[in-house]
Structures are given as C-alpha cells and as structure tokens.
C-alpha cells in the first residue's frame, strides 16, 4: 500500500466545509433572530400588521412584509412558469439546432445579469411603462417587482425544464407518433407528464430565487410598509426590508435582532416551500414508475 499524499489527510475537512458553512449560517441567523423574542412577543411578530421598528415602543409586526413577499413571488411565478415552460419546450423540442444554439446562451446571459441591474432597469424603464399602461398612480408596485422577478427566475425554470424535457427517451415519442398522435398531442400527453418531476424541481428553484431576491424588489417594489391592498400597490417584501434597514440600525439593538428574525422567517418560508416541492417531486416520480 503506497503512502497517502499529505493533502489527502486534509481533504475531508474541505469536504465538510459546505455543511459547516450551512450550519454556521443557520445557527448564526437563528441565535441573533431569537434574541428578539426575549423582549418582543413572537405572536405579535408573526401576526402584527404594523412594522414600525423605530417608534417607541417599536412595532414589529412582520405580516405585511411576509404577505408582500408572497404576492411578489406569486406574481413572478404566474408570469415566469408559462414563459419558462414555453422557452423550454421551444428550445428542447421545436427549434432547429441553429436557433437552439443562439437561444440557449441568450437565456444564460439573462441569468447572469446582476440583480441590481434588473432593479435599475426596473426603475428607469419597467416601472414607468407599467404606470403608463395600467394607469396607476405610481409605477413601483408589487406587480412591477413581480414582473422583474419573473424574468430573473425565467432562466432557471427554462433551463432545468429543458433538461427534463430532453431527457425523456425518444422511444416514448416514437411510440406515440406510431399510434397516429401529432407532435402536440405527444408533447402534452407523453413528454410533459414524463418530465413533470424535473419541471417541478425547475419551478421550485425559480420560486426560491424569487422569494430570496433582494435588490430588484427593494428598488422596484415601492417600499411601502403597510399591508398591501392589491398587487398594484407599493410594497416592501422581507428581503427588501432587511436590506433597507440594516444599514441604519445600531448593532445589538432590538431592531437589529428583529431584522435577523425576519431572515429566520424567510428561511422558514423557503424551507417549507422546498419540503412541499420535494413532496410533489417524489409523488410524481413514483407515479411515473
């Protein structure tokens, strides 16, 4: 048996770095966040409808922020899922090789645009456009933020769904064509059902990105702190609130910890969503056999 290289003794340490980092992050965020509830009621934090952290006494009702996060992400998904799936189907099944070679990199470029640039484009172009087209008093709304988020999560949804669609064995399609089915029927009844677990993963990753996105919703969401009346009112989701307020609050105070508590809420939301997505993923994988 030959001697092991020195570096091989250290490799396992690096192997666990991601686990360590993940635990460090979760523990840090939760310990800092939980401190809030030594002096503020958890119930009031979860159900309160007023977020006024600088008032005396502070009001830390996070419900409007949570609702805003949900509205913005759901709007984003309503737009991004059809667009992303259509892109995936087009690239995966309909486009010829030349078009495919152009479209795929374009989708990748869309994914690489920094979120602050999306936010910037949102302010200078999308918000005024939304305001004008929908005759709104203000262009920076939850809907506008959702629209921007849709294009930010589209590449994730499109590329992972496309992988799932192209991974469906061609023999299924041949069988369907041989029965006299058209390309469309084959797509709807055979290919997409077979790709469903992959598509669910794609959508859940896209949704995760939308929930956690900060800069674009901060810049385009309009920043209003009250409970949103409609998707067309200005709002400030959880992420945007943390980003906007952390810079102006003293370290170690109630407000500081409350912002960590918001991050806990965000992490829980993402986790719950992932568990649900995983459940459906498993269910459809089993159905497929």
């Amino acid at each position: 048996m030959k001697k092991r290289a020195v570096i091989e003794y250290f490799l396992p340490i690096f192997g666990y770095i991601a686990v360590v980092a993940l635990f460090a992050i979760v523990i840090t965020i939760f310990t800092e966040g939980v401190t809030t509830f030594k002096s503020y009621s958890l119930w009031k934090f979860l159900t309160g409808t007023a977020w006024r952290p600088t008032e005396e006494p502070a009001k830390l009702g996070s419900l409007p922020l949570l609702v805003s996060t949900c509205i913005v992400s759901i709007v984003a998904m309503i737009i991004a899922i059809p667009l992303g799936l259509a892109t995936a189907i087009y690239i995966g099944k309909l486009a010829n090789d030349k078009v495919k070679d152009i479209l795929k990199p374009i989708v990748e470029l869309l994914a690489s645009i920094p979120s602050v640039v999306y936010g910037f484009f949102g302010i200078v172009f999308i918000a005024p456009l939304v305001q004008k087209v929908l005759h709104l008093p203000i262009g920076q709304t939850g809907f506008t933020a959702g629209l921007i988020l849709a294009f930010m999560s589209l590449p994730t949804i499109a590329s992972i769904s496309e992988d799932a669609i192209t991974a469906v064995p061609a023999s299924f399609e041949w069988a369907s064509f041989a029965l006299g089915a058209s390309k469309l029927e084959t797509l709807i009844h055979i290919v997409i059902p077979a790709a469903t677990p992959g598509i669910i993963t794609a959508v859940s990753l896209g949704f995760g990105r939308a929930i956690g996105e900060t800069m674009a919703v901060l810049m385009v969401g309009g920043g209003a702190l009250g409970m949103p009346h409609s998707i067309f009112s200005p709002m400030r989701p959880i992420t945007a609130t943390i980003a906007a307020e952390m810079g102006e609050t003293p370290v170690g105070g109630l407000h500081y910890h409350a912002l960590f508590a918001l991050a806990c809420e965000l992490l829980l939301l993402v986790t719950i969503f992932n568990v649900v997505a995983e459940y459906f993923h498993q269910k459809f994988t089993r159905m497929r056999g």
Binding site: A18, A21, L22, I25, T28, I29, E32, S115, L205, G208, I211, G212, E213, T214, T239, I242, A243, M246, L259, F260, A263, L266, L267, V270, N274
Partner: peptide
C-alpha cells in the same frame, strides 16, 4: 447552501 437568499449571506 446554493439556494440560501443572498441577503442572508449578508446578515
């Protein structure tokens, strides 16, 4: 870890 929102990394 790759799905943790970037603002959480900031915190």
């Amino acid at each position: 870890l790759s799905g943790v929102p970037s603002i959480v990394f900031g915190l």
